Measured scan of single mutants.
Amino acid sequence: GKELVLALYDYQEKSPREVTMKKGDILTLLNSTNKDWWKVEVKATANDKTYERQGFVPAAYVKKL
């Protein structure tokens, strides 16, 4: 199945390749080969529509579930 990670801290994206997350968010882990930056998929809701974004977050800010 898919691997999930838990956001340990809030993170505000600093570039278009990154994604914003809030502490407590559960994210889908896409790639953890880089030890510093993990690629995740974030589900977000805006205007009653759910959309998914993929991007990088600092590996130290998340932990595998």
Rank of each mutant, 00 (worst) to 15 (best):
G1L: 11
G1K: 13
K2H: 13
K2R: 13
E3L: 12
E3I: 15
E3Y: 11
L4Y: 15
L4E: 07
L6M: 12
L6K: 08
L6A: 05
A7P: 01
L8E: 03
D10P: 05
D10A: 06
Y11A: 01
Y11H: 04
Y11N: 01
Y11W: 09
Q12V: 15
Q12S: 11
E13M: 11
E13G: 14
E13S: 15
E13V: 05
E13L: 06
K14V: 07
K14R: 13
S15C: 12
P16K: 09
P16E: 11
P16R: 09
R17F: 12
E18F: 06
E18G: 09
E18T: 08
V19W: 03
V19I: 15
V19P: 00
V19Q: 02
V19C: 07
T20W: 05
T20R: 05
T20E: 02
T20D: 03
T20S: 15
M21W: 01
M21Q: 01
K22M: 08
K22H: 09
K22I: 07
K23W: 04
K23M: 07
K23C: 08
K23G: 05
K23Q: 11
G24Y: 05
G24W: 05
G24P: 00
G24L: 02
D25L: 04
D25M: 12
D25Y: 04
I26N: 01
I26V: 12
I26Q: 04
I26W: 04
L27A: 07
L27V: 06
L27M: 14
T28R: 10
T28V: 15
T28I: 14
L29F: 02
L30T: 05
L30V: 10
L30R: 03
N31Q: 09
N31Y: 06
N31I: 07
N31E: 14
N31V: 08
N31W: 06
S32T: 08
S32R: 06
S32I: 05
S32F: 05
T33F: 10
T33A: 13
N34F: 07
K35Q: 09
K35F: 07
K35M: 08
K35D: 10
K35E: 09
D36Q: 12
D36P: 02
D36R: 13
D36T: 13
D36E: 12
W37E: 04
W37A: 02
W37H: 02
W37S: 02
W38I: 04
K39E: 14
K39A: 07
V40P: 01
V40L: 03
E41C: 14
E41W: 06
E41T: 09
E41M: 13
V42N: 07
K43P: 15
K43Q: 13
A44F: 15
A44K: 12
A44S: 13
A44E: 15
T45D: 10
T45S: 12
T45Q: 13
A46D: 14
A46G: 10
N47G: 12
N47P: 08
N47V: 09
N47H: 12
D48L: 09
K49D: 09
K49T: 10
K49W: 09
T50W: 09
T50F: 09
T50G: 09
T50Y: 10
Y51T: 12
Y51G: 11
Y51H: 09
E52A: 15
E52P: 15
E52R: 15
E52M: 15
R53G: 05
R53T: 06
R53P: 01
Q54L: 05
F56M: 07
F56K: 02
V57F: 00
V57T: 02
V57W: 02
P58W: 04
P58I: 05
A59S: 12
A59W: 01
A59H: 02
A60Y: 08
A60W: 10
A60F: 08
A60C: 15
A60P: 07
Y61M: 14
Y61F: 12
V62T: 03
V62C: 15
K63I: 14
K63Y: 07
K63F: 07
K64Q: 08
K64E: 06
L65Q: 05
L65G: 03
L65M: 09
